[in-house]
């Protein structure tokens, strides 16, 4: 799969390392590997259209609600949240915070749902 035909493309702005993926959670895995050895964050370059409107103000619960799947893949949440300019790391931090306040739960690995 090349950058031209991959549905999901993400990049590290610091070292220009780019990844392509057919599953958005592959980008989350890439972020974790890359962050572990560089400390860098990763931004989305391409993702399929969400097909729904997000609120103007960042709200991670609204993203989870807007996406069709339940539970929804973390990578899909992150791809959607990139419309607010969020990086992968910022989205994962926000999801973590919401989980630890009881608003979100993780019925299966790297997939979240509203409580």
């Amino acid at each position: 799969m090349t950058a031209d035909d991959a549905p999901f493309v993400a990049c590290c702005p610091d070292c220009a390392e780019r990844t392509t993926a057919s599953d958005p959670n592959e980008v989350v895995a890439f972020y974790r590997r890359h962050h572990a050895v560089t400390g860098h964050d990763v931004t989305w370059e391409r993702m399929p259209s969400l097909g729904t409107n997000l609120p103007a103000d960042p709200d991670i619960d609204a993203v989870v609600a807007a996406l069709d799947d339940s539970p929804v893949a973390l990578g899909a949440v992150s791809a959607a949240a990139s419309e607010w300019g969020w990086t992968v790391g910022e989205t994962l931090d926000a999801v973590h915070d919401r989980r630890l306040t009881g608003a979100l739960w993780e019925p299966r690995d790297d997939h979240v749902a509203l409580v």
Partner: peptide, 10 residues
């Protein structure tokens, strides 16, 4: 010599 740059590629 000091560390100056790290680039990580997959």
């Amino acid at each position: 010599y000091q560390h100056a740059r790290r680039y990580v590629s997959e």
